[in-house]
Write a protein that binds this DNA or RNA. Sequence first.
DNA 1: TAGATTGTTAATCGATTAACAATC
DNA 2: TAGATTGTTAATCGATTAACAATC
Lengths: 205, 205
Amino acid sequence: MANQIPRIIIGRLPLYLRAITRLKKEGHDYASSHELGKLLDISAAQIRKDLSHFGELGKRGKGYEIEFLISKLNQILNTDDVWRIIVIGAGDIGSGLARYKGFINRGFKVSAIFDIDPQKIGKKIGDLVVKDLGEMEAYITSNQIQIAVLAIPAENSQDVIDDLVKAGITAILNYAPIYLKAPEGVQIEHIDPSVHLQKLSYFLK
Amino acid sequence: MANQIPRIIIGRLPLYLRAITRLKKEGHDYASSHELGKLLDISAAQIRKDLSHFGELGKRGKGYEIEFLISKLNQILNTDDVWRIIVIGAGDIGSGLARYKGFINRGFKVSAIFDIDPQKIGKKIGDLVVKDLGEMEAYITSNQIQIAVLAIPAENSQDVIDDLVKAGITAILNYAPIYLKAPEGVQIEHIDPSVHLQKLSYFLK
DNA sequence: TAGATTGTTAATCGATTAACAATC
DNA sequence: TAGATTGTTAATCGATTAACAATC
């Protein structure tokens, strides 16, 4: 099972998981590739092909058992357990993430939030108290954190990335509108609303 | 110039624009496809191929004139002018977007923010005052808004989408962790941090 | 059994890369 | 001119789709 799955397939698995979790909430027990496909605007053939990389997950004639597929997808994505993640930057985005209730059943939990601004350090956000950025490295090491979310201005982000990696972080979700370099083996994902808006505006007028 | 450009290429143009804008800020006048490629982890050949869809934008022997390429990309992406966009939902994400200083030089400006919660209506966020969701449709019509950002809980988002489209919105950036249906011709982009985090966690452990 | 839907192969389609003539 | 880099063609690579035997 699963010898170097293409990245593009991995990128679709969270969407499958999100869609099928919704079907479960609606009371379904089984979902066919066609149903899922309609929900996601993805062809049924592609969904079957993607899933088949991880074994025979469906039942011919019936579809995919939802409970089973959910647990299988979580297993594949390593979200069986909850990852403790840290957030760097206690601005609007960082605060929003720290307060966000939706992470926990997707496999994540913000366990600390850091900022460099003395005005913010010590402030309470949701269940957390903003920590001094200076404590970040020690925190990562002693809590064995692997995932960090960067929610700070672009100018400072490359420096912080370097510190994060040095401390042992191996996966970064970056909200700064800038492309960042990380050493081989450190995964980075980017979220930049302006990029999405520009994709949209291309099609307008 | 430009007969039905593949979506995947359009998706890269904002990245080119972001990278080259940075090079401008650093004082460069020209950028070669190799420089850009190194900055973005994209092959030089691909960058040249992508850009060539829109004419001969470079100078052989020199590269791309930065000032010219920026204006050309803005022209292609329709971000020459500033789009007035609206934000639905005045929670952390909505507030963050309303206060975000980075939109204006990427071609966007939040011109109104709406919420359904009486506690939030009337509150000041940045330069804006939160409006009643009930005023949304009238606002869209009379201001000819085309782009909306959805930053509300998943449960309510399909209803709001329908209202948005009815009022004339043709492009939506959706922060709710759910796949939404919109009629043909209405573009939707999705941002769901959990999806990105799950892509990251796949590679861990 | 009949109907439905998977898993998988082969065919198609599209995107990326390599290579190089054109040319600044 | 010599060196550099584009624009573009052809070759390669990879992803998607169509189709259907297997089977629940």
